[in-house]
Design a protein around this nucleic acid. Structure first.
Length: 477
RNA sequence: CGGGGCGUGGCGCAGUCCGGCUAGCGCGCUUGCAUGGGGUGCAAGAGGUCGGAGGUUCAAAUCCUCUCGCCCCGACCA
């Protein structure tokens, strides 16, 4: 950790973000342009994200499998919109084993095609449906401009791919997953999100309908945090996924796909972080509680460490770390663990040993405001309560921030003003041209048409034509 | 791909315009002593073919030519 001061978010948000990621040791730049190394601390956070989602998927009947990294180029070309959407950003393997390949292989940018191919082999009867498979893996998209976690050439994610007998079932699945993502974001990440439908121009290449959860970052820009797509029969037709129904009639299946990526790590950082650095939500934090022993000689050390060891055992239900590195002052350690976002710090020094107390310092309230001295009795219960409270306060703070930065423009000029530093929520006729005009004028895009609508009708904020839905419009990552 | 910037110990930089001692500085690292309840102090060390190739010159981090790479801003996106 070289420089002592982090740039503040107000000074330079994107520099703040980069430095937090690097200095908290979440990730580092790899020797390949646009690629990152996820360091142990960042990966540990990702593993907790994985664990939570994986349990939720399995609880709803999904199972995991693994499909190849390399996909024949011709597969991508089978679905028209899909190939148009992805071909500009494909990494293509043309040589293998020293000779040129007969058919180039693409490094998967997403796996609808190769999974569709396999599903066509596996699905023969309505009894084979539904197929509910998820895959944890990595994909490559040759992005032009990259940011650690938010957009890298290679990223890690889960991609679920399901096939169903009816359109209704596929839609139900798509929405069920959207709910899972939402619950995960809110209950585990403390990240408030808005569920919505993507516009035609923003939807996934090859989907009939795309849904997403959108979150507001600390600079008010929007981040699409997960998506769930109803693919209709597009891929079933492209890959011939057909089954015989109970009436012995041949039918195309209906498929879905859905994903959440390491980008969510970026969402956590930018939703909760403050000028001291990261603030990790307690349920996902790799370390929930850090204990800092304080002493100045051997005698004090042995007394303090005795208490520290006892407290550590008592808190074994939590992810806990004792920072007993010699040669670092307590103050240095406080700052370092604050930068790294540990939700709760416990300080134990000679005075605490005497009085039978420990000091709590909650990360969501830096400085003296977050400090309290508590008795050493029932520490486990006190910590549990504190972590719940931190989660709740992180969520409500983020929600309040988001609500304070959403505005309803009355005119197009107002909209242009709003999206410079917030989200606009306004009537939109659904026309692509209006969307394009907004983007052209402001760089903001329609983030989603929220599932929760106010009802009634209005006039499109751009063209003034009748509109029956409202949309969120914002600049996004 | 268009525009801008930068490559000098692990990291951040100075030195380059105007060629010339042994290539400096801060942080980090190692060792020792002190310190230890909010970014500790002192001392001694280790560590560099100046992105690469070619050229000019008595002499190149510095000038010339070519080249490679990275970062930032736009078009594309989880």
């Amino acid at each position: 950790m070289s420089e002592e001061k982090l740039p503040t978010r107000a000074e330079n948000y994107s520099e703040w973000y980069n430095q937090v990621v690097l200095r908290a040791e979440m990730a580092d730049y790899a020797p390949v342009r646009g690629c990152m190394v996820v360091r142990p601390y960042g990966w540990s956070l990702w593993e907790n994200i994985q664990g939570s989602l994986d349990r939720r998927f399995k609880a709803t009947g999904h199972t995991n499998a693994a499909f190849p990294l390399l996909i024949p180029m011709s597969f991508l070309q089978k679905e028209k919109e899909h190939v148009e959407g992805f071909s500009p950003e494909l990494a293509v393997v043309t040589h293998g084993g020293g000779s040129e390949l007969e058919e180039p292989l693409v490094v998967r940018p997403t796996s609808e095609t190769i999974i569709g191919y396999m599903y066509s082999k596996w699905v023969k009867s309505y009894r084979d449906l539904p197929i509910l498979i998820n895959q944890w893996g990595n994909v490559v998209r040759w992005e032009m401009r990259t940011r650690l976690f938010l957009r890298t050439l290679e990223f890690y994610w889960q991609e679920g791919h399901t096939a169903h007998a009816t359109a209704e079932e596929a839609e139900e699945e798509t929405r069920k997953i959207l709910d899972i993502y939402t619950k995960f974001a809110v209950d585990d990440g403390a990240v408030p999100v808005i569920q919505g439908r993507k516009s035609e121009t923003e939807k996934f290449a090859g989907a009939v309908r795309s849904y997403a959860i959108e979150a507001m970052m600390g600079d008010t820009r929007a981040l699409q945090s997960a998506t769930s797509h109803n693919l209709g029969q597009n891929f079933a037709k492209a890959f011939d996924i057909r089954y015989l129904d109970p009436n012995n009639e041949l039918q195309y299946a209906w498929t879905t796909s859905w994903g959440l990526s390491t980008r969510f790590v970026g969402a956590i950082i930018m939703t909760h972080g403050d000028d001291q650095g990261l603030i990790l939500p307690p349920k996902l934090a790799p370390i929930q509680v850090v204990i800092i022993p304080i002493y100045k000689n051997d005698e004090e050390q042995s007394k303090v460490m005795e208490t520290v060891e006892r407290v550590k055992r008592e808190l074994s239900a939590f992810r806990i770390h004792v920072d007993d590195r010699p040669g670092f002052t307590p103050g240095f350690k406080y700052n370092e663990w604050e930068l790294r976002g540990i939700p709760l710090r416990i300080e134990i020094g000679p005075k605490d040993v005497e009085k039978g107390t420990v000091a709590f310092a909650r990360r969501d309230r830096p400085g003296k405001a977050g400090k309290s001295f508590v008795q050493q009795t029932n520490l486990s219960g006190q910590v549990a309560e504190m972590l719940i409270d931190i989660h709740a306060s992180l969520f409500s703070r983020a929600l309040a921030f988001r609500n304070a930065n959403i505005f309803e423009p009355r005119t197009y000029d107002e909209l242009k003003e709003i999206v410079q530093g917030g989200w606009a929520f306004s009537w939109w006729c659904g026309n692509k041209d209006c969307e394009a005009k907004i983007k052209e004028d402001t760089k903001a895009t329609t983030r989603c048409i929220p599932l929760e609508q106010p009802g009634g009708t209005g006039r499109c904020i751009v063209c003034g034509e009748p509109a029956n839905e409202k949309a969120y419009i914002a600049r996004s990552y």
